[in-house]
């Protein structure tokens, strides 16, 4: 090894040592341990190391777990659709309707900043808006639209979809905004010059070119909504528990870590699959503008 090569590898080891050890020890190995525990057996109140597929069989054979998985999928899909329906127009508006860069940057900031502001509080506030003694009910009674407070607004799937959509709109806007920003205005002008109206220009030029952003936003929203347990535990009712709440129970009252780990592994694999498919489709559908 020449001194130059030696220096190269010494530098590599010196810079890389701590991050590699840290990431393996505190990230990679924990995921592996979770996978291992999902094969264990529960012998109440203990868990015995084992290698059997009973926990996974239970997840897919017991209608209770299958049902909650399907419900979670449905809710996460609905949230993605609604967040897209509201987020896309918002991103489109910022890029194509707002004329000045200063206003656009300001509004963009206003839209995405809530993304990082206390997730818990943003879920909590819907509890006080939709609750029986809450803002919406008292407003409707005050204006005389209803004369009895309604319990219909809170503790159900609708409340959960409203809350999760609210939380994830910025996630949707961000990648779509980035995709729309990259579309050269000359392509849209060309479409107009060739006689296409705004509708067909949108459908044939803008939408295909922003598809990558739509896929990225929908993927992130679906995956994160799929594993949420805070919003359902605050605003979801008995029929609104999601798979993450079931996992939570296995590590609490039900005290069945192997089953909880198996459920969690299923979420992990599902999310990884979705991310991989979405990355592939993004690459496949990519249109080269250069």
């Amino acid at each position: 090894m020449t001194p130059r090569q030696k220096r190269y590898w010494l530098g590599f080891a010196g810079v890389f040592g701590v991050p590699l050890v840290w990431t393996s020890l505190f990230l990679l190995i924990p995921y592996a341990v979770m996978l291992a525990v999902s094969f264990w057996t529960r012998k109440f109140p203990l868990f015995v190391p084992d290698f059997q597929f009973g926990n996974f069989r239970q997840v897919f054979a017991d209608p209770q777990y299958l049902e909650v998985l399907l419900r979670t999928g449905k809710i996460a899909a609905l949230v993605s659709v609604f967040a897209l329906a509201l987020g896309y127009p918002l991103a489109y508006f910022l890029i194509f309707i707002v004329r000045t860069a200063k206003v656009r940057n300001f509004l963009y900031m206003v839209v995405i900043v809530p993304l990082w502001v206390s997730y818990l509080l943003r879920a909590y506030v819907w509890k006080i808006i939709l609750g029986t003694g809450g803002v919406l009910n008292s407003f409707l009674m005050w204006t005389g639209i209803i004369d009895q407070p309604s319990g219909l607004f809170l503790y159900n799937q609708t409340a959960m979809i409203i809350t999760l959509t609210y939380i994830f709109i910025p996630f949707m806007v961000m990648p779509i905004y980035t995709a729309l920003e990259k579309i050269p205005p000359r392509l849209i002008e060309a479409s107009h010059d060739l006689g296409e109206g705004p509708f067909w220009t949108f459908l044939r030029v803008v939408l295909p070119l922003s598809w990558g952003g739509v896929v990225a936003g929908a993927t992130l929203t679906f995956c994160l909504a799929f594993g949420d347990f805070v919003a359902p535990s605050l605003v979801g009712g008995p029929d609104g528990m999601l798979v993450a709440n079931t996992v939570q129970t296995q590590f609490g009252a039900a005290l069945n870590w192997p089953l909880g780990s198996a459920l969690s592994t299923v979420i992990l694999l599902l999310v990884l699959t979705i991310i991989t498919i979405s990355e592939r489709s993004e690459r496949y559908g990519k249109i080269d503008l250069d």
Partner: peptide, 12 residues
């Protein structure tokens, strides 16, 4: 989802 990472770490 954060819960997956949380549970992996708890097990570990």
């Amino acid at each position: 989802p954060g819960i997956v990472t949380g549970i992996a770490m708890l097990n570990f």
